[in-house]
Design a protein around this nucleic acid. Structure first.
Lengths: 213, 213
DNA sequence: ACATTATGTTATTCACTCTTACATACAGTG
DNA sequence: CACTGTATGTAAGAGTGAATAACATAATGT
């Protein structure tokens, strides 16, 4: 052990946890640049390794992006879980809280949205990833199921309702992210918009609402 | 979308309408590849010009993509306009027809969706483009306004309702495009899903639906 | 010790975008 | 009709970044 770390630039030849370091570095770059087109070598530099090192851990840049995307989906799951506890489980407020949290997440991280749902996203990837992509969704499904029971609306399919509810939040988040909502209604707040939208929708589910064309 | 301007057999040194030819070529490449990462030289080849010629008309590839995107938004406007005449103006069916047409457009051209709303999309572009991006939206606003009057619901803001309605269609289209809906409800049809979702929402707007928490 | 495996480096290749310098057509003017 | 300016084309190549190849270093197991 006489060879003490001279520490010219690198302490150890082996990084130790390069794979994770690269995922973190890529995540930072995406956040900072607000886009996915960082260079592999930049992620490598951030982890203090050479440009070729990442290819020991990821087949190509897309694989690295996918790994970052997986982390992002897990983070979104956490967001959904936390939102669940903001209001009584199964209440309308609980559902709305989840939608709002979803919108906040998307709005705060537009570049991650691109990663998760954009052209480089999971659209053309395999099924395991798809399951990851929708794992957080089932947190919502649980709430919706509870809501249906509390509201005495057992005739509705919680899964179907959840998809519709998700789509409302997703659509508003997407439009807000693109600036469309600000452009159309400069004074509007996406969260309020979602809340009133959700309330209208939930009201519409109740039998008292007569179907009229 | 398949505006086949077959002016390719050009014998002259000057092309004549290279700008448009490139837009068409790029659109075809996007449609064929299902992605935006075609090479500029491929678009140039399709127009029978050299690889540098496009740069006389477009500052860079992004500018070409933007031009294609503008054409795509105009095509979407047409889709919306046509859908308006599928049912009595101002009826629920008319609104639903518009949403369905929107969903069809997005589902049929996922690569164009990426172009129009993705990371290479208009998010970071200027205001004129934003107006183009939402011009078709005001077709919907007109229908919604008529619907409000026919339904005797003048207390609602048609603009706000339209945004919410748009978001429902947009969200479902986006999730469907990513395969999420198929994954969650393999037997579900996005158009039916949208229709029932829209009906629920419109029902919820009627005063008979009591606000309950 | 020594072989094996994992992980890193340098140097290089390849594809693609974008630029530069030059060439050609066409329209307007004397 | 020559003359000239502008628009538009070409050819060649610089610059960027992903990915690979060949080699180097460390950790591990027997």
């Amino acid at each position: 052990m006489s060879k003490n770390t001279e520490a010219r630039e690198c302490k150890n030849y082996h990084h130790g946890d390069l794979r994770n370091a690269l995922i973190v570095a890529a995540g930072e770059l995406i956040e900072e640049k607000g886009s996915l087109d960082f260079a592999m070598i930049d992620a490598a530099r951030r982890a203090n390794v050479s440009s070729a090192a990442p290819y020991r851990h990821f087949e190509d840049k897309d694989a690295l992006l996918q790994a970052v995307s997986e982390v992002a989906f897990l983070a979104l799951d956490d967001v959904a879980r936390q939102a669940t506890s903001l209001a009584p489980y199964g209440s309308s407020a609980c559902l709305i809280a989840q939608g709002k949290a979803y919108i906040t997440f998307v709005s705060d991280h537009p570049a991650f949205y691109d990663l998760m749902w954009g052209d480089l996203g999971l659209r053309k990837r395999n099924l395991e990833d798809m399951e990851l992509q929708t794992s957080g969704f089932y947190i919502l499904v649980g709430c919706v199921r509870a809501w249906c029971e509390q509201a005495g609306l057992r005739s509705h399919d919680p899964l179907e309702l959840s998809v519709k509810f998700w789509a409302m939040a997703h659509g508003l988040a997407c439009l807000a992210m693109n600036g469309n909502i600000t452009q159309i209604m400069p004074s509007a707040d996406v969260h309020s918009l979602f809340e009133s939208s959700a309330i209208t929708f939930l009201d519409g589910l109740r039998p008292s609402a007569a179907a009229v064309t």
